[in-house]
């Protein structure tokens, strides 16, 4: 399952500056595990010690907030885009 992951600026130090990387994964959780294998240290930046998404990180699958889907158990399919976006922004 080829998934495109969009990486925000604060995490690009881990991905050698790349803003987009490809992983093979069937769920969001699995994608994060794969990212950790490829880029050690990635996982702890996204998930807290209980495996929950950190409160200042928003994850989107094809532009939909995973909190409106099945959270980290949201399924992924070939060609999906997983975006990691800092939560802090905005104000009308």
């Amino acid at each position: 399952m080829g998934i495109t992951v969009r990486v925000p600026t604060p995490l690009r130090r881990l991905t050698d500056g790349q803003g987009e990387v490809e992983v093979e994964a069937r769920t969001v959780k699995e994608a994060i595990e794969k990212l950790e294998e490829m880029y050690p240290g990635f996982k702890e930046r996204i998930l807290d010690e209980n495996g929950e998404v950190r409160r200042f990180v928003n994850l989107y699958v094809n532009d939909e907030d995973i909190r409106f889907l099945k959270g980290v158990d949201t399924e992924l399919k070939e060609g999906d885009v997983l975006s990691i976006v800092p939560a802090i922004a905005g104000g009308r």
């Binding site: 925000p8 604060p10 130090r13 930046r45 950190r54 200042f56 990180v57 800092p86 939560a87 802090i88 922004a89």
Partner: peptide, 10 residues
């Protein structure tokens, strides 16, 4: 800059 590079906090 608006986001902490480490914890994504504001």
């Amino acid at each position: 800059l608006h986001v902490c590079e480490f914890c994504f906090g504001p």
